[in-house]
Every structure is written in C-alpha cells, then in structure tokens.
C-alpha cells in the first residue's frame, strides 16, 4: 500500500498530515494546512528598563568588573605565592651523590675521544651510544634519558655552558626554565659549573609531550673543557631525584667516570 508523503506535522498534537488531509488535523482538528498572510502593523510597547525584571542584575556592570578582576587577580597572586613557597630549593646534596641503587659492578664500556683525550665510562647494559663525532658522544641512558659530552680546547667554562645551552633544540625541548645552579658539580673529579632546568619535551617524531628536567655542566682541566648536557623525564621526587631528573642516578654514572687527559 502506497502512503501519501507527509508534508508537515500538527503543531498541537504532532500528528503527521499529508496533502490529502485537508485543512485540519485528522486527530485533533487543529488547522494545519492553511498559510495565512502574516498580520502587519502590530506594535508592542517597550517597557522602561526599571520595570523589566531581567534588568535587575545581581551583578551590575561595575560589580562584574570589580568581582571578575578582583577574583582573577586574587587567585593569580595567591597561587603564585603558593607555587613560590612550595618551589623546590634544590638539594644540598652534591649532584654526584651516591646512587640509591648501589654501585654498578659489571658491564662497563668506554668512550675515548681521540681529539681532546678525555674518556667516558658507561654501563653497556643500560647505556647505548646514540651518535658520536670528533668532539664528543651522545649516550641514550635507561628508559629514555640522554646525555652528551662535548670537548673543546681552552678553559672557557662559561662560554662552553652558553654555547651548549644555545645548542639545545628549542623545538624539542621547549620552555626550559632555570631551576638553579648545580651545587657541588663535578665532572670526573674536576670541579664544574652547571645549571639545572625544567621544561617541556616535545618528541621530534611525534608523541606525547611531557615535563623534562635538564642539566648543563662544564669543567675544564689541562686546557680541555668538557661540557655535558643531560635530559631526563621530570620527577617531582626532589628528595631522591636531584633537580627532578627521573634517571639522575643513571646519568651520574658516566659523569663521575669521566677522565680528563692527565687527570689522576
């Protein structure tokens, strides 16, 4: 059985109607089909604002500005004070404090830089050489941490630190903010200077970004300057992970076992 197409619905009861339904809804009798001309010439008077309930605002424009701006500014100030107070001040412990995991015993490998004569020992089981060139080496450590060693001739530690920091890929390591100096920094047994940073890691080949900790350190001995740049996932466990580097202990190993040419 072929049904006539529905051309509309009754506004009162919702029953569908067709061209054959006539001028009235078959269910409730509501006129549905006629499309009378719209009446014109009507007018509705405008009520004075004072008599319109919707104009009785709880928040006048002035109060809205006061409360809005006041609340935002108060929250910004209070929360800024809170984050400043709870900010980790860094540990008094040397960055090369002994690892909680105990000293590694086996599996040492050695990177030897022929150009500047320094060398770096690392654990082959957990550390892989990512790349190397005449000046140094990049090591992938643990579950995704990274450390690089770069040698230069001379004693300009500050210059080496600056150029190393400038060399960090800002697309990958974004928003690096200094946390503070690395207290008691050493590379090998040589006193060093260094700064810790926090920022965001954005994987160059795609992937989830996340907070990252970074440290740039440099030391000079026997007219050779070695600068290290290390990155690791950021950890809030400041007590056990100095400067927030989640794998700081693993990174500490090759730093501690760096040998400058002619060093004891």
């Amino acid at each position: 059985m072929v049904q006539a197409p529905v051309i509309g619905f009754c506004g009162r009861c919702g029953a569908p109607f067709t061209a054959a339904s006539g001028s009235f809804c078959g269910r409730c009798g509501n006129p549905v089909a006629a499309a009378p001309p719209v009446a014109s010439g009507y007018t509705y008077p405008v009520a004075p604002p004072g008599s319109v309930p919707a104009m009785q605002h709880k928040l006048s424009r002035q109060r809205l500005w006061i409360f809005g701006a006041g609340a935002v500014i108060a929250l910004v100030v209070i929360m800024t004070v809170v984050v400043v107070v709870v900010r980790p001040l860094g540990t008094t412990c040397h960055f090369s404090c002994s690892s909680q995991h105990g000293p590694p015993l086996v599996g040492n490998s050695l990177y030897k830089n022929d150009k500047f004569g320094y060398s770096v020992e690392y654990l082959a089981a957990s550390t892989k050489v990512a790349s190397s060139d005449a000046n140094g080496v990049v090591l992938n450590v643990g579950q995704g941490s990274q450390i690089s060693f770069t040698g230069t001739s001379g004693t300009d530690v500050d210059g080496a630190l600056q150029s190393a920091f400038k060399g960090i890929d800002s697309n990958t390591f974004q928003d690096l903010q200094p946390v503070g100096p690395v207290r008691g920094a050493e590379i090998g047994n040589v006193p060093a200077k260094g700064t810790a940073y926090k920022g965001n890691f954005v994987p160059p080949n795609g992937g989830a970004s996340g907070p990252v900790g970074a440290i740039v350190m440099a030391a000079s001995f026997n007219n050779v300057t070695v600068v290290t740049v290390m990155f690791s996932g950021y950890s809030t466990d400041q007590a056990n992970q100095p400067y927030g580097l989640a794998e700081g202990s693993s990174l500490d190993y090759p730093i501690t076992l760096t040998h400058f040419p002619g060093s004891p």
Binding site: Q143, G144, Q146, G207, G210, P211, G233, S235, A246
Partner: peptide, 20 residues
Amino acid sequence: TGTFTSASLNGTQQGVLVSA
C-alpha cells in the same frame, strides 16, 4: 596520567592509542 607519562623522554612509551 602524569605518573605514567612523565618518566620517558622518547615520547613513544605510551603510543598513539594511549596519548591521543
């Protein structure tokens, strides 16, 4: 989410299925 996404630096530990 921060607990199990912050430890890795290579960004692929969670993979696209988890992260995206």
